[in-house]
Amino acid sequence: MIPPQFDYVRPANLDEALAILRDREGAKVLAGGYSLLPLLKLRLASPEVLVDIGAIAGMDGIAEVEKGLHIGGRATHRSIHENAAVKARYPLLEDAAAGIGDPQIRNWGTMGGSVAHADPSADWPAVLIASRAAINVRSAGGDRWIDARDFFIDSFQTAIEPNEILTEIRVPAPGANAGGAYAKLERRAGDFSTVGVAVQLNLGADGQISAVGIGLTAVAPTPFAATDAEAILMGATPDEATFRRAGDAAAAQSSPTTDAHGPAEYKKAMVSEMVVRALRSAVSRARKQA
């Protein structure tokens, strides 16, 4: 498994990187490499030049502001998992980060790289959809903010243009009485998800669900928002029957394919089950906050 030939540059700053993306054909951004390198080794990608953004300062920070969490495009899975604000207030992110790949991959793989790669089974996209995150992409011409729900176009295809770099992801603050959870069904530790369900919700003063986002991964050509399930849950009492109705609605909205992870029918059923489990956990966390 030997990659094809390509050129390699490691620009010192973002402007330089963007100029290269603007000026050179077949350029591809390299962050941690844990998504891109496997493709290169299988010769499924053959870029002319890799633009390594590893040396660009300031892209890997995680900052909590009043409105939410600002995550640099090159922040690693591990740095997100270990971030104090994430541990305190973003359990959905903490859950998801803990289950991506294995420890070595979490040391070097990045949220931005994973999101830009847009593997239909990746975990972060569902998380960003559930939490209604915004994704910033920058070109030589300037910044462009894209709603996570509009970002994923098809398998391995996003709204990023070839001359753009994903620089930052903003996750809105969860607000009062919030709970989030990621329920991942995998065949074995380190496996890609068979089904991944991200839930972010709030409970109102009356104990009913006042806001909810649900993102699903691995059960459609792209990760997507389970909007039918969200509609069922909005304003509803968080009980088992409601969770199951939401789960079934999410299953109905999914379009998995049969593969080594299982037949489509099984995956649909697992969407329902994992939605229920994620909701249970998210609601329980929200109640603890209350």
Partner: peptide, 20 residues
């Protein structure tokens, strides 16, 4: 598995130039 700047990494999924 090796350590790159002190963090464990899978050296089959890194380019030599990334270690420069």
């Amino acid at each position: 598995t090796i350590h790159l700047d002190g963090e464990s990494a899978k050296s089959c999924t890194l380019l030599a130039v990334q270690a420069d």
